[in-house]
Write a protein that binds this DNA or RNA. Structure first.
Lengths: 129, 129
DNA sequence: GTGTTGGTTTACGTTAACGTCAACGTCAAT
DNA sequence: ATTGACGTTGACGTTAACGTAAACCAACAC
């Protein structure tokens, strides 16, 4: 049962093809401190945590975040430790993020509404053919 | 009652401050064919349609679209005319867009879920203080 | 008439996020 | 021993989306 567990390591090519990004991209992410693969004889080996971070980075990208923003957020996520002061600051940041995500959701809802309207006009136009 | 109506024109500075973008940005958008202001003695005057397009462009940006993508979509929206063939092609494109928007919504939902989890851990950590 | 405000064009600069070589090492298979 | 697949480090190239500066015009305020 200890197969797909958290001790697994991934070569750069494997991770790249799994997430459909280039190896260059992964090296770039390491360079930027977004990923921190282990090095064995110069060769990179990514672990499960790196994989999770990569997933979050790519989701962030899809949502229109810069790598820097994603990095900041992910670091926040990894960080629920520290004093009361720190934790409260973290909660505040999380609140900001939540607001942002809700605004994004509103934009999407609006876009979907617009799209439906256009679609309707389009169907009407097809009717009158 | 004909005040804020569709015949209004906007100077570049007005539109810029209303949408909180630079005038450079508006000129750039014109250059790219995203906006097509009228010219009176060399000076740009934007109309209500330009304003709508600008709103859509900025929403597209927030959702992570490139200007080119936004342009294509907006042009689609403006275009429900043409033959049956065209209309059906348009419907297909709209469907793609809808799928994309739904995926975006899923990403947001996932991000919100993650955020809630972190928030919970954070509150727990605050409890044990 | 001389600022101040708001517009114009032209053109070079900048940043992010990689792409794209080049030149090289390494290990297993033929 | 050489071929091929996979890895490495530079280092320069590219594209999008503007920023920024220079040099200019037009109108209005004082």
């Amino acid at each position: 049962m200890t197969n797909q567990d958290s001790t697994r390591r991934f070569a750069i090519g494997d991770l790249a093809s799994e997430f459909n990004v280039s190896t260059r991209t992964l090296r770039f992410y390491e360079e930027k401190g977004l990923l921190t693969p282990e090095r064995i004889g110069g060769v990179r080996y990514f672990n499960a945590a790196d994989r999770v971070r990569l997933r979050l980075i790519l989701r962030g990208k899809r949502l229109g975040l810069s790598l820097e923003d994603s990095a900041e957020i992910i670091d926040l996520y990894d960080a629920p430790q520290g004093g009361k002061r720190q934790l409260e600051a973290l909660l505040a940041k999380l609140e900001e993020r939540r607001d942002w995500l809700n605004r994004q959701a509103q934009d999407i809802a609006a876009a979907l509404a617009d799209l439906s309207a256009v679609e309707q006009r389009c169907r009407d136009a097809l009717e009158s053919t």
